[in-house]
Amino acid sequence: MNRAPLIFLGAFLALSFSWAGLVLSNQVGYGTLAPHFDDTENKAYPGQLPGLSARGALVYQDLGCVYCHTQQVRGGEPSADLARKWGERESYARDYLRDTHVQLGENRIGPDLRNFGARAPSAGSPAAAAALYQHLDNPSSVVPGSTMPAYTFLFTTRKISGDPSPEALAVPGVPAGSELVPTERAVTLVTYLLGLKDTYDYPVERRLNTPPAPKAEGKK
């Protein structure tokens, strides 16, 4: 009976130990990591998310995309992430400074999205957004056999008044005189996804994470 306080104290110390060791030490170690200022380009990396993208990140969060899509590129054996062109390099902690809410993900039911904006079909052109709208509206029409849900509720059918919307989806089954257009949530989500790219290479991380070149002489 009088050992209960001892158990409490011990339990407190045991969990404090892991909290201090894992959480506190890392918060001190790199919790205040700053963006890297590149004096050649006069810009800091990673840059802030533009407003529309930041709202898209919230849509990404509320739809629970993270349960099927990771946002982390892994290097080294046996990962094939780089060979799959999911990124030009492995992800670094500094890449995630722009995310208010880091969503590394735990299961790759779908492909990694960390560099989706860099590798999206016809990246950078308006066609990229159109392709992504179609993918969200009906995934299996773009990727046969895809098990991704159809996010039809992100799109709305409306009467065409005036000029047709440039964002209207070119899909069959829309009544004449109407068009299928993305809702605001779809627009922000697509802006966010197409903005996902970690193409800048940080010199410090590169130096620390590149294995030393094997010495030429003295092969064993």
């Binding site: 011990g10 339990a11 045991a14 892991s18 060791g21 894992l22 170690g29 790199y30 892994r74 992800s91």
Partner: peptide
């Protein structure tokens, strides 16, 4: 006591390979 001390540390082993410090992954 061993269970109490080590269990909470093991959590970060699920981050092996993720962009978190190597020593933390190793600790997990």
């Amino acid at each position: 006591w061993a269970y109490a001390i080590f269990t909470a540390w093991t959590g970060v082993s699920r981050l092996a390979g993720a962009p978190v410090p190597a020593w933390t992954q190793t600790a997990g």
